[in-house]
């Protein structure tokens, strides 16, 4: 067991030496891997931060319930009381037709013209704010259907405010993040397998000799696997540095913006577990790519 570990340590050291002997090409591939891993990392941080921002805002969804013309103020009041008792309703606010008219006069500037009307044309309005945990499209839809079936109701209208749209957009970005991550992971696989391919071709003679004197494929594969994993490791480290740099550059202006809105929001960088996940992904992809590349080339090489 000790001898086995010692051998692995030797291969690891010689792999490091090999990468160090070709600093130019090593730096190139590590840089490309770093940028490729940094892109989804940054997008992930964007989504994570945006979610934190939006969680500060409360709801924003409400249902406007316009009552029929003949409904009296008392009837409206009792309906409001009944609705508040529902599990999915948090709060009901009554805007009487008089209040609405006054508000409209003030805001529209048609004051005198409205005075000329024989009667108040505006209906009574109930503004219904749902319980936050019921703020899901299907549940809101159900609430809306039930409200519409009430006899006193002329029109029920769901106002999905921009917070809702924002959440939908975030969901979309998150979906895009997954697709992008898969594509970029493929890119990393191709980059690493290409540099491994070059390394194998460079050492073709050595591989042939090792095979002739009885080296197993496992033995031949080992240094290339370490090579691939090291590239992945360095690439992941590069990605973490790049992301930290971006966060560092963006933090001050975003801080200013948040202060303008009176928010205590602070941009979050990568946490330690998140950084470790990037490292694991980098090393894993490096291993996979070199395993694939070496396997393919060893099978094609003579003697077997």
């Amino acid at each position: 067991m000790r001898a086995y570990l010692l051998r692995h340590a030797q291969v690891l050291l010689s792999s490091i030496g090999q990468l160090a002997r070709m600093p130019g090409s090593t730096l190139m591939s590590v840089g490309v891997i770093g940028i490729t891993l940094a892109l989804p990392g940054l997008l992930y941080l964007l989504v994570a931060n945006a979610e934190r921002v939006s969680s500060e805002w409360h709801g924003g969804t409400h249902v406007s319930l316009f009552l029929r013309a003949g409904v009296t103020a008392e009837q409206a009041q009792s309906l409001a009381t009944a609705l508040v008792d529902r599990a999915d309703v948090n709060q009901v606010r009554i805007v009487s037709s008089e209040q609405a008219l006054a508000e409209f006069k003030e805001l529209s500037g048609f004051g005198d013209a409205l005075d000329a009307l024989p009667a108040n044309p505006l209906p009574t309005l109930l503004v219904i704010i749902p319980e936050p945990r019921y703020e899901q499209p299907e549940l809101l839809e159900q609430l809306l259907v039930e409200l519409r079936s009430l006899t006193a109701v002329e029109l029920a209208q769901l106002d999905m405010e921009w917070v809702q749209r924002f959440h939908v957009i975030l969901k979309l970005i998150r979906r895009a993040l997954i697709v992008l991550s898969v594509l970029l992971a493929l890119a990393v696989l191709l980059i690493v397998s290409n540099t491994i391919r070059l390394a194998i071709l460079n050492r073709r003679e050595e591989i042939e000799i090792i095979r002739l004197i009885g080296g197993t494929d496992r033995f031949i594969r080992r240094p290339f696997l370490y090579n691939g994993m090291l590239q992945g490791l360095l690439g992941a480290w590069m990605a973490i540095v790049l992301i930290a740099l971006c966060v560092h550059l963006l933090r001050p202006p975003i801080q200013v913006l948040a202060n303008l809105y009176g928010s205590a929001f602070r941009v979050a960088g990568l946490s330690l577990p998140e950084s470790l996940i990037i490292v694991a992904i980098g090393v894993g992809l490096g291993w996979l790519a070199s395993r694939w590349s070496v396997g393919r080339h060893l099978r094609a090489m003579q003697p077997t």
């Binding site: 095979r211 002739l212 004197i213 009885g214 080296g215 077997t304």
Partner: peptide, 14 residues
């Protein structure tokens, strides 16, 4: 078997 080839080659000096 193919997997045994390396071990066999160790018995032959070339």
């Amino acid at each position: 078997p193919h997997r045994q080839i390396p071990y066999f080659r160790r018995e032959v000096g070339v």
